[in-house]
Every structure is written in C-alpha cells, then in structure tokens.
Simulated scan of single mutants.
Amino acid sequence: MLRWLAGRGAAPRKISRELAHITPEAWLTVLSGLPFLAGLTPSESEALRQRAAWLLASKNFSGAQGLALTDNIMLSIAVQAALPILKLDPALYEGWIEIIVYPGGFLTPHIETDESGVVHEYMAEASGEAWEGGPVILSWADAGPGRQQHANVVIHEFAHKLDQYGGDIDGMPSLEAHAQLRPHQWGTVLEQSFDAFSKALTAVEDSIPQDVDPESASAAAWFDTLPLDPYAASNEAEFFAVSSEAFFVNPGPLAKGLPDWYTLLAQYYRQDPLRRLA
C-alpha cells in the first residue's frame, strides 16, 4: 500500500508511523472542521489520509511566536495541503521541507515601484506565503477549521508550490504527467480567463456608487458577484492560486463564471469538486 510513497521525501517506516497516529477519531475530528471534504468517497478519504501522512512525515512543522503545534493543527494543515495532490504525484511537493505556522497574521517585507519610478519599501500583514525553494508559512488563525468558508489559505499557498515546481511562477504548473494537456492550451485558457476576470472586476469597481468605500465591507455586495476574490487579478500566479482554493472549497461560482478555466483545473487536478459537493 505504501510502495508509491517510497523514496519520496520520507522513509516508508516514518510514513507508517504517521498513518498509525492518525486515529479514526482524529481523522473524523479534522474532516468535520473542513466541510468542503464532505463529499469524499471512502476510497478518496483513505487516499487523502495517506497523502496527509506523507506530508507529516516529509515536512518539518515549526510553530512561530510561541504557537504550540498540536497533532490536530498539523493534521488539519496536512489534510488541506494534501487535497490538491489527492490524485497527483506527491513528488510535486518535493524540493523544500518546512512548514512554519504563526498563531495569526504575520508581517512580510514588500517592495513596490510606483508609476514615477519611486521605490517603496514597507511591511504588510499576510496570512500565508510560499517561498520559492523555501518554506510554506501559514497563519493558523486563517488556516484552522471554521474560518472563511469560501477561501482557503493552505490550498492557496500549496497551489503556489505546484506553480513553482512547474518552473516560472506564472500560473502554469508542471503538465508532464498530463498527456491530454498542452502548455499552449493551458496558456491560452489561462490568458483568456485572466483577462475576462480582470474586465469583470473593473466593471464591478466602476459600478460601485461614489458614496460607497470600495475598501469597506459595504462594497462586498458588488464584489460577491465575481467568481473569484479580487486578489486573483493581481497576476497569473495569484489567479491560479486563488482559482485553486475556490475550485476546492467554493466551485459553483468559478464553474459558472469561468467554465473553460474550471474544466481545465478539473483536468489538471483530476477532481470535480462541483459534482462531489453537490
């Protein structure tokens, strides 16, 4: 049963120990806190448990700012991270070893150049980051069960890892194991979908009355008409990551608003959450 895991980041004996630690009680506790997993078949649930065990055995979990990592925290993160590779090769998560978990949001340095060419350096709060060749960093306040039902920071950051494994961080993961998918096809659908979403976002922004602050909660009614969070329009890499989290946790609006892109993601991940969650 564990032959497919051998040599992929952890010794089979270590993986077997992690599997043994995932008791039925612990497994059900974690699944109950992640409603988007409700439609998994028994065989899919077992495959997800094996991949979660592989992650626990292969990655070093570290708590930051005094966060005491419990078995439940690590298992919950591992399960969410394992969902995108449920039917993919776990080797796609190789090349790095650490997952750092903060109790809440954390500050990260940013550098931006404005239209005048002036460089601005500042610190901004983040709920997750995926460093190229380095760790995945997460906020447990945003990654834990019962948090945002239509977003998922763990899936978002691990989608970035899939993107990074494919080479350039450009919204195109490795397609080597997908004979039916071609880079040109992916690039075309990605570009068309990204442009369509960007135009839809601009239309929504233009429709917000002048007396409504677009940065306030009052503007949510307008932005909620979009199939994705506005952050997806940042660039193609963020479009892929935001789309991936929506694909798994809130697939309906994505499938309706960007059907060709949803179909392409379903072919890549070899899953159909829309049918599963129905």
Rank of each mutant, 00 (worst) to 15 (best):
L86F: 01
L86A: 00
K87H: 13
K87C: 01
K87P: 00
L88K: 13
L88E: 15
P90M: 12
P90N: 15
P90W: 15
A91C: 05
A91S: 11
L92F: 10
Y93T: 00
Y93N: 01
Y93E: 01
Y93F: 15
G95L: 04
W96I: 00
I97A: 14
I97N: 15
E98L: 02
I99A: 06
I99P: 01
I99C: 11
I100Y: 10
V101T: 04
V101M: 06
Y102V: 00
Y102H: 08
G105P: 05
F106G: 00
F106Y: 06
I111T: 13
E112W: 09
E112G: 03
E112C: 03
E112R: 08
T113G: 04
T113K: 14
E115C: 04
S116G: 00
V118D: 08
E121M: 07
Y122G: 01
M123K: 02
M123W: 14
A124M: 07
E125T: 05
A126R: 15
S127Y: 11
A130R: 12
A130Y: 07
W131T: 09
W131F: 13
W131V: 08
E132H: 12
G134K: 07
P135I: 12
V136A: 10
V136Y: 11
V136Q: 09
I137R: 12
I137Y: 06
S139I: 06
W140G: 00
W140M: 07
A141W: 11
A141D: 11
A141G: 10
D142M: 11
A143L: 07
A143H: 03
G144R: 15
G144V: 02
G144W: 08
G144I: 01
P145C: 03
P145E: 12
P145F: 11
G146N: 12
Q149H: 13
Q149T: 06
Q149Y: 08
Q149R: 15
A151N: 01
N152C: 04
V153D: 07
V153M: 02
V154M: 05
V154A: 05
I155A: 04
E157Y: 05
E157S: 03
E157T: 01
E157M: 02
F158T: 04
A159N: 04
A159T: 02
